[in-house]
Design a protein around this nucleic acid. Structure first.
Length: 585
RNA sequence: CGGAGCGUAGCGCAGCUUGGUAGCGCAUCUGCUUUGGGAGCAGAGGGUCGUUGGUUCAAAUCCAAUCGCUCCGACCA
């Protein structure tokens, strides 16, 4: 690209609505343009980086015998009604009607569409396993889009779907895709961590799934990591064990006044008790269809509830915290909730398994301005149901090796791999014949990568005060060629060098604009291509050399015009190797 | 959806309290000068003040409604 003829504009000022570095830099460096909330246009520089990511993905998938297709982005309601997700994904889906009144939606994901393609063409175990993928636009009507393309409503995702005659084949492909995914981010030189995850509404409960998390302070995901054995999991799925010194007592349960003390902090502060010697009571409503059940969850005072665990326990479609109105209906005073003598007909009660049932706790009095002291669950409560419900936390003991202490890391989820099993083939009634001529539901795996999010994550991890620092593998171009001269002969020379670089396979941007050198250098730093090449009238007149400079290290070197191609190729190769080594955690 | 805030030129903002017919910096255009870290001088173009309605002799300014955007929360393969 010659900038004098190109389409590229940078901004000196940081846009007010951009919060995190990658979002600010993508706008300032002229990579993207926001057209509406959560909707972006990719400009030439941004699009090239995105295409680099996509091509790495294509190359790595090809190695694993995955074939690219492209399903339609708009899909008919029938497909979603078949799988039962037309209503389940309500809210996330952008639905519409065509002129005949048929209902359609913009795909938020494509399991149904791929199953639909699969069932048309595959009918025998002999055709399996097979893995198809696409790189295509998705739309999820996020309640709150934010952080630029990190959480946009329209985005581009690579989604792959594999089909299998049996579990063994499904496990095998899962493992293969794990390697494919690792190679992809390795090649980009990103620091990432693979973590155990929760399947959410995608997979059946308990099925295998892992997330690939690019490590970044601005990440929205919390990951727990054991430095001893390397165990890592999304905090939602993490298994940590809390070790607490509980307090024991022989004293009888006692009702005391706690006027206007409603929160844990207030009650424990007032009674001068550590929060871990009290029970936190939270009420949730579990909804399945028209059926609504209430559940009282008891946790150690300073623990948090893991809603996913509760949702699994309740086997419900939706879960929401109870509102004051619900509590009024149940005739329970908000702020003074507790298990002691509560009516089990109205509400289910579950103790978290971290609670020592023989220890003594402070708990709500079930009447206004009252709490109990010395509540001992297995002495004072007759019906006790225990389940694992707490959110694991940094500081927990690792459940895998029993030695390490879990640490928290923030991550950006750029990919997730699932073993789906027969969830979709069953609901959509897809069968193939096995060796015995028997009809079976094939098993599925699915594997997603946020391509647009990967670009943002790469910038999030590679930037400094001056701008972006692209990894070589996904940089929009390799070399930012700055010419400093007004002399026509020099401009002409820069065009010759530019052509020469292109002929040798080096992707180059030539800044031949009629602006000052400072302006060009600032722009080059902001865009952050791996190498900057400078042809300056002043220096060239002195020694006949050009300057080549590394954006990341700032290291610079003078080189003769004749050696340009070779030097640049060597630098790029060296940089790429260095980046490969720095990946993964 | 609940809470908060903001909509004035492409971008960043002032003006609004106390109504009098819109301004600054950057960007853009022209000319001259300037070329190793976002140049200087001189001039120019560009705004239904988000929209609609109301109050008023007069509304960017006051009132109401509405739309859009952002932040916090809930939501999230």
């Amino acid at each position: 690209m010659k900038l004098s003829k190109g389409f590229w504009q940078t901004f000196k000022e940081t846009p007010t609505d951009a919060e995190i570095p990658s979002h600010q830099l993508m706008i300032r460096a002229g990579l993207i343009y926001k057209q509406s909330a959560g909707l972006f246009a990719y400009l030439p520089m941004g699009l090239r980086a995105l295409q680099k990511v996509e091509n790495i993905i294509r190359q790595e998938h090809a190695k694993a015998d995955c074939y690219e297709i492209r399903a339609s982005v708009i899909t008919p309601a029938e497909l979603w009604l078949e799988s039962g997700r037309w209503d389940k994904m309500e809210g996330q889906m952008l639905k519409m009607k065509d002129r005949a009144g048929r209902e359609l939606c913009v795909s938020p994901t494509a399991e149904e569409a791929f199953v639909d393609v699969f069932r048309k063409y595959v009918s025998s175990y002999k055709q399996l396993p097979v893995c198809l993928y696409q790189i295509n636009t998705k739309f999820r009507d996020e309640i709150r889009p934010r952080y630029g393309v990190m959480r946009s409503r329209e985005f581009i995702m690579k989604d792959a779907y594999s089909f299998h005659p049996n579990e063994e084949s499904m496990h095998e492909t899962y493992k293969k895709m794990y390697d494919v995914y690792s190679n992809i981010w390795n090649r980009m030189g990103l620091k990432y961590i693979v973590v155990d995850a929760d399947g959410g509404t995608m997979a059946s409960a308990g099925s295998r799934t892992q997330e690939f998390q690019v490590i970044a302070d601005s990440g929205e995901d919390r990951v727990l990591h054991c430095p001893e054995c390397g165990y890592a999991a999304n905090i939602e799925a993490a298994e940590g064990k809390r070790v607490i010194e509980f307090s024991k007592t022989d004293k009888k349960i006692e009702l005391v006044d706690t006027p206007d003390k409603k929160t844990m902090e207030e009650v424990c502060g007032f009674l001068k008790v550590d929060k871990k010697h009290s029970l936190k009571s939270v009420v949730y409503s579990a909804i399945t269809g028209n059926d609504e059940k209430f559940v009282l969850v008891l946790l150690v005072g300073d623990d948090e509830l893991n809603e996913i665990k509760l949702k699994t326990l309740m086997k419900c479609d939706h879960l929401r915290p109870a509102l004051e109105g619900d509590l009024d209906k149940l005739q329970i005073p908000a702020g003074f909730l507790g298990p002691y003598k509560i009516d089990r007909k109205k509400i289910k009660v579950v103790y978290d398994k971290a609670i020592d049932l023989s220890a003594s706790f402070v708990t709500g009095g079930l009447q206004k301005d009252k709490h109990y002291l010395h509540f001992v669950p297995n002495r004072d409560d007759k019906e006790i149901e225990v389940s694992d419900l707490r959110l694991s936390n940094a500081g927990d003991h690792c459940s895998k090796c029993k030695k390490g202490i879990l640490k928290e890391i923030k991550g950006i989820e750029v990919g997730q791999i699932f073993e789906l099993g027969d969830r979709y083939t069953k609901s959509m009634n897809v069968t193939i014949l096995d060796q015995n001529g028997k009809a079976i539901h094939p098993l599925m795996g699915c594997y997603g990568i946020g391509t647009t999010r990967t670009v943002a994550a790469a910038i999030e991890q590679n930037n400094d005060a001056d701008g972006i620092i692209w990894p070589v593998s996904i940089a929009p171009y390799h070399v930012h060629f700055v010419v400093i001269s007004k002399n026509e002969d020099f401009i002409k020379m820069s065009y010759e060098i530019y052509d020469q670089l292109i002929h040798n396979g080096i992707e180059v941007v030539l800044d031949d604009r009629n602006v000052g050198p400072g302006f060009k250098f600032k722009d080059a730093d902001l865009l952050g291509l791996p190498l900057r090449l400078t042809l300056g009238e002043r220096d060239y007149a002195q020694d006949g050399m050009l300057e080549i400079r590394d954006r990341r290290s700032g290291k610079a070197k003078k080189i003769m015009k004749e050696n340009l191609i070779q030097e640049i190729k060597e630098w790029l190769l060296q940089k790429q190797n260095d980046e490969l080594k720095s990946a993964r955690v």
